[in-house]
């Protein structure tokens, strides 16, 4: 059985400058209950893809379908009710109290001209508790560590209650302990019926958490499949270069990929 797609990209093309395409025909599908990882080298168009998938950018060609409807036909509120994004660090919000920041996730549910209701506030408190961030609800974002801030960003996306959840490099600023915590939450979210898409550079977390992996290179899909299918020398070396070491986790047999520096003792 396959769940209906929450999010689909069909032949997405996009460029910021004429004649310089960042994405050259990307297809992807995100279904309810699954966790999909998008990999790719710096500058391959990952963040652009996230902007397109949440309706913040319009594709030059192709389409993004949210719950089967073309994102261009949906207003901002309906896009936000279909897709929530956990952004990388935002600037300008250091002075914002955590509680008010998370309340932002309720915006698409609050009718125009109205203020957030008691129900909206309850949803925010629940989201903060789920991400173990309730303890610092009264602080401002600038007073938090990178890991705490990431949990607050995630809480805002959960408060948004959108079926599709996009995480843009959620672990890049985190220590290993917090990395697995955040991805555990993402996995729980998928198990609870969301579709979760994680954009990351971390091949080994991908190996452990991904149900499906999409490898982007030069603005196009270079490979797609399970972690075991994609995280192999013959698919990764053409994209990341030769200096990779491949192994397997002894307990699960899942692939390990490490960057291989020159050894000073050799």
């Amino acid at each position: 059985m396959t769940a209906p797609p929450l999010l689909e990209a069909r032949g997405l093309r996009f460029g910021y400058e004429p004649g310089q395409e960042v994405l050259r025909g990307v297809d992807l599908t995100l279904r309810a209950g699954e966790i999909l990882f998008v990999l790719g080298p710096n500058g391959c168009g990952k963040t652009t893809l996230v902007h397109l998938l949440c309706g913040c950018l319009e594709p030059a060609a192709g389409a993004v379908l949210l719950g089967g409807e073309d994102a261009r036909a949906l207003d901002a509120r309906r896009c936000a009710r279909a897709v929530a994004v956990v952004p990388q660090d935002l600037d300008g919000v250091a002075g914002v109290p955590v509680e008010r920041f998370v309340l932002g996730g309720r915006f698409p549910h609050v009718p125009a001209w109205r203020s957030p209701s008691a129900h909206d506030r309850a949803q925010c408190r629940a989201a903060l508790e789920r991400t173990d961030a309730a303890g610092f609800a009264a602080r401002t974002l600038g007073q938090l560590s990178a890991g705490q801030r990431q949990r607050v960003h995630l809480a805002r996306a959960l408060a948004q209650e959108s079926p599709a959840l996009l995480l843009d490099e959620p672990t890049s600023a985190l220590d290993p302990g917090h990395q697995v915590e955040v991805l555990d939450l993402a996995r729980e979210q998928a198990a609870a019926g969301s579709g979760v898409l994680v954009v990351t550079h971390d091949l080994n977390l991908t190996s452990q958490y991904a149900q499906r992996v999409l490898l982007l290179a030069d603005g196009a899909v270079a490979a797609e499949g399970t972690a075991a299918e994609v995280l192999r020398p013959e698919t990764l070396r053409p994209v990341y270069g030769e200096r990779l070491w491949f192994g397997t986790f002894p307990d699960s047999g899942r692939p390990i990929v490490l960057p291989r520096g020159g050894d000073a003792s050799e």
């Binding site: 902007h51 913040c56 509120r77 896009c79 952004p87 935002l90 919000v93 914002v96 915006f107 698409p108």
Partner: peptide, 13 residues
Amino acid sequence: QGGETDARRLGVA
């Protein structure tokens, strides 16, 4: 406060 892209992602026209 988080920028227009962020506002847009949260559903602000």
